[in-house]
Design a protein around this nucleic acid. Structure first.
Ligand SMILES: [Mn+2]
Ligand SMILES: [Mn+2]
Ligand SMILES: [Mn+2]
Ligand SMILES: [Mn+2]
Lengths: 218, 218
DNA sequence: CCGTAATATTAGGCTTGCCTAATTATTATT
DNA sequence: AATAATAATTAGGCAAGCCTAATATTACGG
């Protein structure tokens, strides 16, 4: 059984590896975890001994297969708990992350299996992020940033790349929800503002910054 | 916010205080928590500084009002989570304690409020133990040990004093469930075996040891 | 290729929560 | 009351995870 600290390292390393390719830097991990580099070096040596990461001194490190599977297990738990909090307990999507950060460290395979079944085996969490199955396999979803679409194209809003409360609340405010069909009506050349048509009814104008944080599928 | 270790101390002290009256001994706490006396003395000095316990060196200690309320808060969370695990996820009553031991340490008032509402404000947990309300108040329930009843008397089976899996499984096996109406048909003078009538249908014979672990109400 | 800046590691410490061994306090026994 | 047994505390240490300061390594501009 891994400690909560180890599990948080695993998640963070996984995230950085996904984003930036192979080798992860001490500095990047320290920044993501909000701790100092010396602490990261310390911990990585221990995790290396446990074969959770492959560590090359002063070069960088990456997850071993064992570490990768452990990381995916935590992510699975985090996202399933988020679904529970929103679907069953009625939390808003901007409120659940911090609680899930705690719940993801509960150790019980039986619990997570039963929770998964209770939630009817959800494929995505409240933010549109994919939930790996019990074997650690993610359903492949090909989505693109809304900011990459040209006027006239449309698709379904299926995820966000910014998970901050501020951003999620903003989306609530303008009435943009996961699953909405969105059509790019116009892209203003001057300031790159996007005019979007939602489900053919209302239209909203969002900045490039926002368009660049919305994931569109289909 | 208290650490999980502190919360476990609070719960244990509360339990001992309930069972044995006022002052709690270092040795009793050490035994209940499965740690050494020196560790308990250490921790109590810290918790005393935090005004969670009133500590009289070499005499004993007890919870302050602050400590008592904190302890009841943990018990409330533990029991609500047990209800969730049994009622919603389909765990058996003998499987939930260890998982609840972890879940009780999740810090979120909002979470526990919403969970309580989702479970429809249960008054007892799957073992018949009372769940304190949000203000820390227990509904007073006057129950007696089945072993204290004489032939002819009856009541409702509403709780157990032995929470072990072995005992709970045994009750499942003989078909005795929380809420059953139980009538004492006969008490064998020779070996103190109890012959019980369940809901007027089947009858079972249980030992004194068992009768002494069953709580009866009404 | 060299010096400097940026990255990373090492050394030494701290807090939490536990341990063992030694010492002191309390309680029980004669 | 003196002694023995039991309970409790103190002293000194350890592992996990963090920290700061010092040192080493790598990368980069000239
Ligand atoms: Mn999250
Ligand atoms: Mn999420
Ligand atoms: Mn329990
Ligand atoms: Mn219980």
């Amino acid at each position: 059984m891994h400690s909560s600290a180890e599990e948080n390292y695993l998640k963070a390393i996984y995230k950085l590896q996904e984003a930036n390719g192979e080798l992860v830097a001490t500095s990047a991990l320290a920044q993501l975890l909000g701790i100092h580099m010396a602490s990261v070096t310390d911990m990585l040596k221990k995790m290396s001994t446990k074969k959770l990461v492959a560590y090359q001194k002063s070069k960088g490190f990456k997850l071993t297969e064992k570490g990768r599977l452990a990381a995916i297990g935590i992510i699975r738990k985090h996202r399933l708990w988020e679904v529970f909090l929103v679907d069953k307990l009625g939390f808003r999507w901007d409120e659940v992350h911090d609680i899930a950060e705690q719940l993801e460290h509960i150790h019980s395979q039986d619990l997570i299996d039963k929770l998964d079944a209770y939630l009817d085996f959800p494929k995505t969490d409240p933010h549109g992020d994919p939930i790996p199955d019990a074997k650690g396999v993610f359903a492949i979803s090909k989505s693109v940033l809304l900011a990459a679409l040209s006027p006239g194209s449309q698709g379904k809003f299926t995820g966000v790349t910014d998970h901050s409360s501020a951003f999620l609340n903003y989306l609530d405010k303008i009435g943009l929800s996961l699953g909405d069909t969105v059509k790019v009506k116009e892209v203003e050349a001057f300031d790159k503002n996007y005019t979007l048509l939602l489900k053919g009814k209302k239209s909203v104008v969002v900045s490039f910054k926002v368009a660049n944080s919305l994931l569109i599928s289909e």
